[in-house]
Amino acid sequence: MSLDRRLTPATDRVALDSLRGILDRPAYTPGYPARLAVPLADLMTAPDGRRDRQVNFGADLTVIEERGDWAFVQAALDGYCGWLRGTALTEDLPPITHWVRAAATHVYPAADMKRHQLHALSLGARLSVAGIEGNFARLATGGHVPLQHVSESPASDPVEIAELLLGTPYLWGGNSDWGIDCSGLAQAALTACGIACPGDSDLQRGAFPETAEISRGDLLFWPGHVALAASPDLMIHATAWKMAVIRESIPDAIARIDAAGDGPFLGARRPRPTG
């Protein structure tokens, strides 16, 4: 039986209990829950391997195997699996109450914007807010984040979310304001609006129904590429062509990508709210 490596919670040694009878491994485990405690981490194909995707602060994960300084995990957000540094994880799991609604924000040691920041967080980071101090949210995990940058409810327009990241550098496998790729941008925009979305463009194309007419919020697909329609004629995407998140005319993009030999245009899909 062929299983998608990206979504299969198993290493060459250990698999999740749910794969008993499906995948032959020397050992099986129920795994244990953990959460990302650093601003951002690469999900790698192997310890010290190639980056597949990234996970942001507060991401819920299931730990399947620990090997030296590394842990093999599966992300609750989209089922993506990979290796990351075990030191990036915590088993302290206070309830998630908010998420970062700005392109990026800073975490401060106190409710004072003049204090030296502890670190930065990107759009989509998940937060456990324990209280409000002035114009800051106090995190149960430590630190304070400006209230202007957080939300406790989903956004309503994926295009508005994607526009927050205009100019962000292109990064293969990236999922943050420090670098993002085409599928990372689509996932960030839809997830912010409460719409479940896989991590890679081929998976995204298979997740949503086709639509003949392009409307705002639709996903547009090419082989290995995805964009978000801002209107029937304009799209937003993270592209290696400009190494950034840009706006581009849809007809121009179709012609340019075809001319480069990276086509054809595969059509549009319409995301639907989860549930």
Rank of each mutant, 00 (worst) to 15 (best):
G194V: 08
R101Y: 09
S215W: 13
D157A: 10
A196K: 12
R50S: 11
G206F: 11
A238H: 09
W241H: 15
V159F: 11
P9N: 01
K114V: 06
A186W: 02
L139F: 01
T105S: 10
C182M: 08
L185Q: 10
A59H: 07
S156D: 15
S128A: 13
T87F: 12
S215V: 15
L118E: 10
P223C: 07
H116Y: 13
I250S: 08
T274A: 07
A162Q: 09
L16Q: 06
W70E: 02
S128T: 09
A140K: 11
T29E: 04
V150L: 07
P198L: 02
A102V: 00
A46W: 14
D4H: 12
P251R: 01
D181H: 11
S128I: 04
L164Q: 15
A186M: 12
C197L: 10
D92Y: 09
A15H: 01
P94H: 04
G82L: 00
I161A: 10
R13N: 13
R138I: 03
K114S: 15
T141R: 06
A137W: 06
D4G: 00
A188P: 13
G131D: 09
D12N: 14
Y80E: 05
A110W: 11
L228R: 04
P232N: 06
A120P: 09
S183V: 04
C81M: 03
R5I: 14
P232I: 03
P47N: 03
M243G: 01
N56P: 07
A188L: 14
I214V: 15
G167D: 06
P154I: 04
M1I: 06
R25Y: 06
V129L: 05
A244Y: 04
L220Y: 04
M44I: 01
L234V: 12
S156A: 15
S231C: 08
E213W: 11
L123P: 13
G275Y: 06
H116M: 15
V145D: 00
A88Y: 08
V150R: 00
W178D: 10
L121W: 01
L123I: 05
T62Y: 05
L166F: 04
L19R: 00
A10L: 08
Q187H: 13
D218N: 12
D60K: 07
S128V: 10
E152M: 11
A76H: 11
D200Y: 15
S151I: 04
L121E: 00
G58D: 02
F265Q: 11
E152H: 14
C197V: 06
G143K: 03
E66D: 10
T90H: 12
T90K: 10
I161P: 06
D60A: 12
D92R: 13
P198A: 00
R53Y: 07
A137M: 09
V245R: 03
P223H: 05
Y108S: 03
T168W: 05
P271L: 09
Q187W: 09
T141N: 07
W99Q: 09
G68E: 07
Y32I: 01
R51G: 01
I250R: 07
P273D: 06
R53C: 02
P271H: 04
A46P: 15
P146N: 09
D157C: 15
H116N: 14
I64C: 02
L228G: 02
L127A: 00
G184V: 01
L203M: 13
A260V: 08
R126P: 12
S215G: 14
L121G: 01
R25S: 05
L190A: 05
G194A: 03
T141L: 10
F221T: 06
Q204L: 09
L3K: 10
G217M: 01
R115T: 15
L84W: 00
